[in-house]
Design a binder for these strands. Structure first.
Lengths: 183, 183
DNA sequence: GATCGCATGTAAGTGGTTACATGATTTA
DNA sequence: TAAATCATGTAACCACTTACATGCGATC
């Protein structure tokens, strides 16, 4: 598994939940998963084609859909096999790139006020994300309790809530510390 | 700032702390920063060259070093200006790619035992990282209290400790939940 | 004299983003 | 009829990784 295209497996995984078009995948990712996985159109469409050629997906055109016709993809036996094999592989650390922490690390080159601004901006972003995650979580708890992946969705949203809240708490603590040294 | 090469700024930032060779940068990143920033040699060396051409860095060969001679880079006025300008820019969300959470999300395709294995493996990794971070933090607290960036290092290690501990706690909670539903 | 660590580097290829093109249908 | 939304797609370019090449000096 030196170089397995994770994006392809991600797409396979989302389609395994229900048949979808490329457009659907983009929407679903944006709405429910952008805090842990994102894709651009330029990735999605070529991968869908490639995976159909390989026999991991099959598709049909949805004649009932308006506007331009949608091509709906669904996972095949072979695709599901491949997905399951991948899911079993232990997750090895990939290169982290935390630009915010990098900038804090270089804090000596900024004034206290500038640092405070950076942290406040990050804090606002985190809080917005916490809110968004909470909203989707509530929606799923109310409308999708019977989904087969319901417990796993709750696990991931639980992870997000706890980790993001910790980040927010760190911001508050750090801002308080910075405030003290300014005055 | 549509497409500013963050890697270049990261390298500039680390060199701003003290003059270093490409080799040093790699070592320092690996030892102290790999939990939030990593680079490969194939990135570092060409970027060093390019930034010297642009006048952001200047270099000399260290004649005293054994083996192959080391080329030491240090930041210029221009480089420091560029770095500071970049540090002021607010950090916009970049595409997250959390393979572990992705796999948990697809948990319906795994058996409980397989899921437990995944979480345990992740847990071990997180714990190892927490320990590593703690070790470097202690080392810096004991040996580098007088560094100008000391308070900023502590902020970043504080962030790491809290966030990673939250991840570990989530693993423990999740494993307990999974254990219950198995037996 | 083999091997390890220091030190710098490159070729080839993959992965990914940005920005744009296209065109149909619905809504204002 | 203009604008928005649905829907699919591509060209060009940049970022990044893997794997390897090179070669010196110290150590075993």
């Amino acid at each position: 598994m030196a170089r397995c295209n994770k994006t392809a497996y991600a797409i396979l995984g989302f389609i395994s939940k229900r048949p979808m078009s490329g457009y659907d995948i983009k929407k679903v990712l944006e709405r429910t998963s952008k805090w842990y996985w994102a894709e651009s159109n330029a990735q999605i469409y070529p991968i869908l084609k490639r995976m159909e050629e390989k026999g991991c997906l099959e598709s049909h055109v949805d004649e009932t859909s308006g506007a331009r016709k949608r091509r709906i993809y669904q996972i095949t036996e072979k695709g599901l096999d491949k997905l399951k094999t991948w899911l079993l592989q232990p997750v090895e650390p990939s290169t982290y790139r935390n630009e915010f922490i990098l900038k804090i690390n270089m804090g000596q080159h900024l004034s206290k006020e500038q640092l405070v601004q950076q942290v406040e901006h990050f804090h606002e972003r985190i809080q917005k994300q916490v809110k968004e995650i909470q909203e989707i979580r509530n929606y799923i708890e109310e409308e999708h309790k019977d989904r087969p992946d319901y417990p796993y969705l709750m696990m991931t949203y639980g992870y997000a809530t706890e980790v993001w809240n910790t980040k927010a708490a760190w911001c508050e603590k750090t801002l308080a510390e910075l405030q003290e040294t300014i005055s």
